[in-house]
Nucleic acid binder design. Structure first.
Lengths: 190, 190, 190, 190
DNA sequence: AATGAATGAGCGTTCATTCAT
DNA sequence: TATGAATGAACGCTCATTCAT
């Protein structure tokens, strides 16, 4: 009989404790030794549960993205008009500002560390990308992919601007502005 | 007679040759040794003209940002309406797509290596940010800083999306969409 | 009734499945974990049957050497003159070229990982060496140990040359040459 | 002005001190840290002079092989008949027995560590191989490549047998035996 | 002003073996 | 018997920076 440890469950436990670590130090600056120490295991044990630092991170991203989408769904449901939705989106972004900035930071950091090609070819990141894209389409009730890309890019850009250190941007203000513009644009289109 | 090249001019000469190096390898993967070898100087000499790798890069960014703004100005002048301007902006982005993606990539890379706080506190990056912001205001003829941030964030987001590997986004299409939305929004505002 | 397979028989079963693994990856690159997985047992079980990786390998060598000698005996019997024998030996080497090169490779690998002294002092390897030496004496009908060593060294050297990457050596040609030389040498000796 | 160090000469100095280290521990068991400590430099300095452990070793082999051939030339000249030559060869092998065993050991060790393909493709090892082969041809006055391979394989095999731990083999005895056999073989051939 | 040799802590990763269950 | 989680020292290698010359 083996030691009484559910391998898979313990792996997710470890994973759960990793997010804050990455959030604090980013991907490149966080070493496997630091992770191991923070989780009170040896590096060997860490590698027993995750084949590499990259794999650990990808599994983390996978887990996080699922939680993100379901929590956002819970938070933003019940809004009807585009303006309402964008206002809610603004509030949601403000509320989780630090979280999203950190998330972008970590991803950006990972991206740089692995090189463009590695990520482009990773099935996990393609999946995660689709998950977020689909979620945005669902939230907004938008089917036009050009418009969906427009909104997603804008939100990404907002967070990136904050990440670069711009203190003057106000998520709520910007989202409401987008809400108004989208509304007017769609009103007159048909 | 002194030497024709004085300290400061030589420094800028060296700086000029650095851009392509960073563009090819990014910030983290380019070592001071490699820079020195490519410039046909010793690492010691490099450190004689630049106190650190970070400082070298910051001076490079400062220089590049000036050139970017003036070249963009030259390229995009002569357009009147917002729609025309945004269409020109789209063409400009498409034309320099690789350049801007690479620039974002390098910045992201630098960001990762220095840590969040270092950059947020760097006066050079604040200055550069203002320069780009001012340029956008000039291009668009917009004074409203909220709207300027809106446009800048959107463009940043577009480039970031490409950086993430999204092949489906079309800079021209997106910029024209923004042009239409801005036009309608501003028409009815007053 | 006890289980059909007792401890010792099961050990040999496991051993039998190990040869191909070592042949594919060598000694150093094959981990106990990989062995365990390939045999569908746990590392713990592996250590239950073999006290160490080294011991496992030594037992494998012991087993293999027995099979080698008996299969060679079966293959080469029926030849009378030294020339015939050496020609048969050449054919045998050519036929099993990859096998012998791989065997030497694995041994070399093992040798490297254990250090010179460990092996020189291992009774198993001394036994195996004697077994091969005796086999050569039997094949050739030679009693003179100097001559037997001569032939064995030569064959070892041939295989080693192939291992070094020499593509020009022809086992058959070389063995026939040895056959002629031995014949002439022995003709005139008495 | 740089520090007064002739880069190339210092590199060869370091190289010279490395042989004994490799001889004692082999390739795989000797770490770059150990080398650095023994040479009283930092690992960084070691890597300043040699791009990798493999490269260091290859440069060492290159240097050693040159010295070997010239020292053997000096030692063995003046012999006429094949028998004399082989007797001299035997003495030479006996005299440098430990040296050659160690050399084979190190090479075998390196071979295993790098994998077959790496070495087969290394221009340095092809060059070294040719150097030794040519030297043997010169010593023996043999032009027939089959015969040269025969002798080389035999010598390699002798050393390998000793390496495997066989204490009973006598280099002189074996070489003289080879001398006699070669002589008889060549006498009657034409 | 200019050189380039020197540093050394730190990286991601490995793996034979142990032992609580 | 059998399991597999856990260990941790050690590997080859990197690189911004310093400083004697």
């Amino acid at each position: 009989m083996p030691k009484i440890v559910d391998h898979d469950q313990y792996r997710k436990e470890l994973l759960g404790k990793c997010f804050d670590l990455f959030a604090k130090k980013g991907y490149g600056a966080l070493t496997m030794r630091q992770i191991a120490q923070s989780l009170n295991v040896s590096t060997g044990t860490l590698y027993h549960y995750f084949p590499s630092k990259q794999a650990l991170f990808e599994q983390l991203v996978e887990e996080i993205s699922k939680e993100d989408v379901s929590s956002a769904l819970a938070e933003m449901e019940g809004n009807q008009t585009l303006s309402e939705i964008m206002t809610a989106m603004g509030k949601y972004l403000v509320k989780n500002e630090d979280y999203f900035i950190n998330q972008t930071y970590i991803l950006v950091d990972f991206y740089q560390h692995q090189g463009k090609e590695t990520i482009a070819n990773s099935p996990i990141f393609q999946l995660v990308k689709q998950r977020y894209q689909q979620a945005v389409c669902d939230f907004l009730g938008i089917q036009d992919p050009v418009l969906a890309s427009f909104v997603l890019s804008f939100i990404d850009g907002l967070i990136l601007a904050k990440l670069w250190g711009d203190q003057t941007i106000d998520f709520s203000e910007q989202c409401e502005l987008l809400g108004k513009m989208l509304t007017k644009y769609l009103q007159e289109k048909p």
